[in-house]
């Protein structure tokens, strides 16, 4: 046998590594996606700032799609189950995910929640992320489509101030359309801002309290 190669005393070893730290979440996200696909479930991630209307949007989507799909929802929140109960009153199964202090859902939390529902019993899953326009973009969950909700009351610069999350969006919902005039916010400008960053993104304006525009969201999601 040949001599073993060893370093001299005090020799510096140059170790080549290829450890991708963010890859762990992406790998879990892919596993979630495979599991959902295997069970024929389409998953939609709903992201957006606190109070933008993510829960109201899901409520309206659930109401409108009730006859067509068997649905469930995961509801990310720091500490409460208030929103989870709002969605559950429409007769769909809701798994609340409390992150405690984390500002986003991650693929591991979604993986755990996926174990708690009967995937064979549903075709459509809404995953409502924690209210935040920054961190959720870094952590894919395994969904098929991602919606970003911005609302008129957040002011005219919401898109340009948080450009990165719009790169990952398939559909942008501009909510609280009824308040545009009172707030002096140009809806078209918000739409153009989103399309500048991501030309293929579909933009829909809604009023999730009255239900205005919900049908356009359904069309944009191809549901």
């Amino acid at each position: 046998m040949k001599d073993v190669v060893e370093a001299e005393k005090g020799e510096i070893f140059d170790i080549e590594l290829d450890v991708n730290i963010l890859e762990a979440n992406r790998k879990l996200a892919n596993e979630n996606k495979e599991l959902l696909q295997k069970n024929g479930v389409q998953a939609i991630d709903v992201m957006g700032a606190i109070g933008s209307g993510k829960t109201s949007l899901i409520e309206k989507l659930v109401q409108n799609l009730k006859g067509k799909y068997r649905m469930a929802a995961f509801k990310g929140d720091l500490t409460t189950t208030i929103d989870a109960e709002l969605i559950a009153r429409h007769g769909v199964e809701v798994i609340p995910i409390n992150t405690g202090k984390e500002c986003h859902l991650d693929a591991n939390l979604v993986k755990k929640a996926l174990k708690r529902i009967n995937l064979e019993g549903i075709d459509l899953l809404f995953i409502e992320n924690v209210g935040n326009l920054i961190c959720p973009a870094e952590f894919p969950l395994g969904s098929d489509k991602r919606i970003v909700v911005v609302s008129i009351t957040e002011g005219p610069y919401m898109v340009v101030k948080h450009p990165f999350i719009f790169m990952d969006a398939d559909v942008v919902v501009i909510n609280k359309l009824d308040l545009a005039q009172a707030m002096g916010v140009d809806v078209k400008k918000l739409e153009n801002d989103a399309k500048t960053i991501n030309p293929k993104v579909k933009v829909v304006a809604t009023n999730c309290r009255s239900g205005e525009g919900i049908i356009n969201v359904i069309n944009a999601l191809e549901l």
Binding site: A7, K9, G10, E11, I12, F13, D14, I15, E16, L17, D18, V19, I21
Partner: peptide
Amino acid sequence: IRDMKLLI
């Protein structure tokens, strides 16, 4: 982590 140098 691309690489690292170690002192033995």
